[in-house]
């Protein structure tokens, strides 16, 4: 794992390339995490790839409610030769949940970005096939958001719904 110093060195080099890109560095429980701006995510990952982090292990979403900006996308990078892990985070507000897609450079992100879009409503610009992946195609809302209620789902595939609307509520 890059230690706290190593993380700061990476952040410093990133800042030299683009002064605005790195927003925050966190070193917690022997794990380094880097927060960058949404616009610079492609360049950041590409630069980290040249530093050895050439395996994208996971892309997942987080809802930071009630903190702002609410939505977060995490990219778990792995360096297989040095056995290093590094988290790169992006935070976007609910009003403009746009993050550039990294699917072209990292094909593994394809399904995972679709899942983040499905669950959190983060829009990945440039994704080749941004559709819902786990929820039904006509589903409304983004269920993993913290303010999305649990339960109260209408039951699909029912034949008597036209004659008795809302029968499951009674």
């Amino acid at each position: 794992m890059p230690d706290a110093t190593g993380l700061e060195l990476i952040a410093q080099e990133l800042r030299e390339r683009d002064a605005e890109s790195v927003l925050d560095t966190v070193y917690f429980r022997e794990k380094a995490a880097l927060t960058v701006t949404a616009g610079s995510i492609r360049e950041t990952l590409e630069w980290l790839r040249t530093k050895g982090f050439n395996f994208l292990a996971s892309v997942h979403g987080v809802d930071y409610y009630p903190e702002e900006p609410r939505l977060g996308v995490h990219y778990e990078l792995l360096d297989m030769t040095e056995v290093d892990r590094l988290t790169v985070k992006v935070r976007v507000p609910l009003e403009a949940p746009n993050v550039p897609s990294v699917t072209e450079a990292w094909p593994t992100a394809n399904h995972q970005e679709r899942e983040v879009f499905d669950m959190f409503g983060v829009i990945f610009d440039g994704h080749p096939d941004l559709r819902r992946i786990l929820m039904p195609e006509d589903y409304e809302g983004f269920p993993q958001r913290r303010d999305f209620p649990m339960g109260g789902e209408a039951i699909l595939f029912t034949h008597n719904e036209p004659t008795n609307p809302g029968w499951w509520k009674k």
Binding site: A57, S58, G61, V62, D63, H111, Q112, E115
Partner: peptide, 15 residues
């Protein structure tokens, strides 16, 4: 927990 996510190998390998 505020968020639990499983990076499931089947999900990624299916690609």
């Amino acid at each position: 927990p505020a968020r639990v996510h499983m990076r499931d190998p089947s999900f990624v390998n299916l690609q």
